[in-house]
Design a protein around this nucleic acid. Structure first.
Lengths: 235, 235
DNA sequence: GTTCGAATACTCGACTTCGAGTATTCGCCT
DNA sequence: AGGCGAATACTCGAAGTCGAGTATTCGAAC
């Protein structure tokens, strides 16, 4: 039986915390909160407890003792096992060294944006841009505060990463917006025409046919890869 | 009863496809594949069928007819409802206009990287950098091919976005790596020392105590925010 | 001494996700 | 005429996710 692991990164956080020292689940959650790790690792109670149970079942952690403090309910203190420590390292190695496609909601929406008319998409992206600027300001403030109290950058490296991505998204949206406003994105006219026809109540098949005629160049790529490939060979 | 929606973006893709024209589930999956949308929207059969069922239960789509072609098994063709079309628009509006924190595995790993010794993390990030370069080359090739066959950029805008993020990650990792190699990231020495002590078998509490003494400046920020705030007021 | 909000510490079950597995059929090659 | 691989079209159940809800207790103020 190969030692398997849960898929939720929260389980990795649990392993790391227990690698530092034994703890009970609630303490894990408050420690993560204190260290601002909830900004980079999705934390919610339901998942925490089920993840801990799952780790225990797999033998990656074990109950060390149960204590009661004051008249508080009993808490189970967990400790990492040797296998658990091994798995933790393996997991970290994988996540750090091997990039894996992450699907974002925005990327999904972008890829389906053709379903809204271009004017509306432009409007919405303008809105997004304002929101992104707002988030950036907030993130800047947090990092500035950390620098002000002389917190070592090591402790917030993930925030710096997150900010780098935010900046990249901002630049992308800004650029895209400019192209939409200029109408210079190839395919734009077809997109507009398609929505015009839909608004006029033209049925799907007819729209497809009309567009195929009106925008033959834009759609040429889809016709026949063979022919194209052959052409290239011939010329 | 407010019309709710499933949370999986695949459901949004289904709505958009059915907004274009009625289809059966398998056709949805092949259409998405043809249009390369599987690169930006996670597609798997199990999810597809359960998402379709969920959409139907909520009245966002409906079975239009069931046909059998040749001797293939029966297929149910679905169509979008009016409510479904409305929800699709709402959903798109939300996703495009409002950025929402997305948790990536890499960000999680970065935030926990302290659990591995700095030398190993450096090594792993170097590996990641090589992998990222490789992925970038592949992504470039896909976009170049699209340009070569004159596919309108509109159809691959999500790929451009994805590439922008990839580029940003590359730059970040490169920069971080440089700082790690130079040992110039603040907190680096403490990080090294911590692993040195662990390797020597020093127990958790003692490590914490020792580091507190040896790296008092690095850890000053955590002591007492009040005192600091007061100091600022006083000076 | 009591009230009241914040913090502690979890539970529950409905909903989602996942991907490997199954069964069929088409079309080509021999 | 038969065999085989690719494509078609889905099913199933185990596992994971989620956040609202519950119950308690501590501490400070009144």
């Amino acid at each position: 039986m190969a030692a398997t692991r849960p898929s939720n990164p929260l389980a990795l956080a649990v392993l790391v915390l227990l690698w530092e020292r034994p703890m009970h689940p609630y303490e894990m959650s408050s420690t993560l909160r204190e260290r601002r790790k909830e900004d980079s690792i999705k934390l919610n109670y339901g998942s925490l407890y089920s993840v801990v149970e799952s780790l225990q079942k797999r033998g990656l952690i074990e109950a060390a003792e149960t204590v009661r403090e004051g008249r508080r309910p009993e808490r189970t203190i967990y400790a990492i096992t040797e296998i658990g420590a091994q798995i933790m390292v393996d997991w970290m190695v994988e996540l750090l060294s091997t990039p894996k496609k992450e699907f974002t909601q925005f990327e999904a929406a972008l890829s389906l944006a053709g379903a809204l008319p271009p004017e509306q998409v432009t409007e919405l992206l303008a809105q997004r841009l304002r929101n992104l600027h707002f988030h950036q300001t907030a993130a800047d403030a947090i990092l500035a505060e950390a620098a002000a109290v002389r917190m070592p950058r090591l402790f917030m490296i993930e925030a710096e990463f997150s900010q780098a991505l935010l900046k990249a998204e901002l630049a992308f949206v800004e650029q895209l917006l400019a192209e939409l406003r200029a109408g210079s994105l190839s395919g734009f006219a077809m997109w507009q025409r398609m929505h015009e026809l839909r608004r006029a109540g033209v049925p799907p098949e007819e729209i497809e046919a009309k567009l195929g005629v009106e925008f033959a160049d834009d759609l040429a790529f889809a016709q026949d890869d063979h022919a194209l490939a052959d052409d290239e060979g011939a010329t």
